[in-house]
């Protein structure tokens, strides 16, 4: 190997590793703060290594867990229901659009595609969901607006159906007398696992991380997801003080570890994603590659 090549290699390694570590630093700060005692946080600020290691934030959460556990359950419930419904409706819409013998497929494909080009904007959408459908302060508000279906995903699945599923299989099962719906469920869907995994992961992440629907449509704490809760806490740092229902609720303000508790909730919001992600990274990267060109 040439000397200049060795230089190139070293610079490449150095830069990438440096940037990767840099990308992780905010997480270290977050985790470290969540394990720091409130006193040390106030005195020395957020640090990369806890000056006074303490579990008080997590203890506080586990003994005051009503609000947080409920928000967590809402997030899990909405994310899984939303993703399942999204996959079902997306594939059900994409299948007829992929069939060459379905005469109106061009019209409907265009109707789906057009939603990627033009949108009515926030105001009409907000007024429609709140006045016409009336989803303000319901669980529907977290589930329905904007997240449930995505035109781009419909097009991806449609393209997958028409390129990766041999027409001969469909034709053969039709001759055997299988109904269209049966063909769709027992032949087409099982052959589409890779694309389903990819768009399922994308949809799951969007639901898990969504805070905008909560911001627009939810004011009651009962319907807060973990992201909406975190956003609300940030807007109103006093929040946890008010909702504290401990027997010793009249504890002094200074003894409530609010700054570290906030960080601990944020850690809990990230944790499931970080744990699960390495296993699904493959699909995520595929999703980016598919979306990069046309998304």
């Amino acid at each position: 190997m040439k000397k200049s090549d060795l230089g190139f290699r070293s610079i490449a390694h150095f830069c990438v590793i440096f940037l990767s570590l840099l990308a992780l630093t905010p997480f270290v700060l977050l985790i470290s703060s969540s394990f720091t005692s409130e006193r040390a946080l106030i005195a020395d600020g957020y640090r990369f290594f806890p000056k006074e290691f303490s579990l008080e934030a997590y203890q506080y959460i586990s003994s005051n867990s009503d609000t947080i556990a409920h928000a967590y359950l809402v997030t899990i419930f909405i994310s899984s229901l939303g993703t399942a419904a999204s996959l079902a409706f997306t594939s059900m819409l994409a299948y007829p659009l992929s069939r060459k013998d379905f005469t109106h497929r061009r019209v409907f494909s265009f109707l789906v595609f057009f939603t990627m080009l033009f949108n009515g904007g926030l105001v009409p959408s907000y007024i429609m969901w709140t006045q016409l459908v009336g989803i303000k302060n319901t669980y529907w508000a977290l589930l329905l607006p904007n997240l449930l279906m995505n035109a781009f995903h419909v097009i991806l699945v449609k393209n997958y159906f028409s390129t990766s599923i041999p027409e001969s299989i469909i034709e053969a099962s039709r001759i055997d007398g299988a109904s269209e719906i049966r063909i769709f469920i027992s032949i087409v869907l099982p052959l589409s696992k890779p694309i389903m995994a990819t768009i399922g992961l994308m949809t799951l992440l969007r639901y898990w991380n969504d805070w905008t629907n909560g911001l627009y449509f939810v004011t009651k704490q009962k319907y807060f997801s973990i992201q909406v809760l975190l956003n609300n806490i940030m807007q109103n740092i006093q929040f946890l003080l008010n909702s504290s229902s401990l027997p010793g609720a009249n504890v002094k303000v200074t003894s409530i570890p609010s700054a570290s508790v906030r960080m601990a909730i944020a850690v809990l919001g990230i944790l499931p994603i970080v744990i699960v992600f390495p296993f699904f990274q493959k699909y995520y990267i595929k999703g980016i590659a598919l979306g990069s060109v046309k998304g």
Binding site: W211, Q227, L230, N231, P278, I285
Partner: peptide
């Protein structure tokens, strides 16, 4: 690659 992708998995709230 994982380290560089991680930030994108985090919501803007976090």
């Amino acid at each position: 690659q994982t380290a560089l992708l991680l930030p994108q998995l985090v919501s803007m709230v976090i």
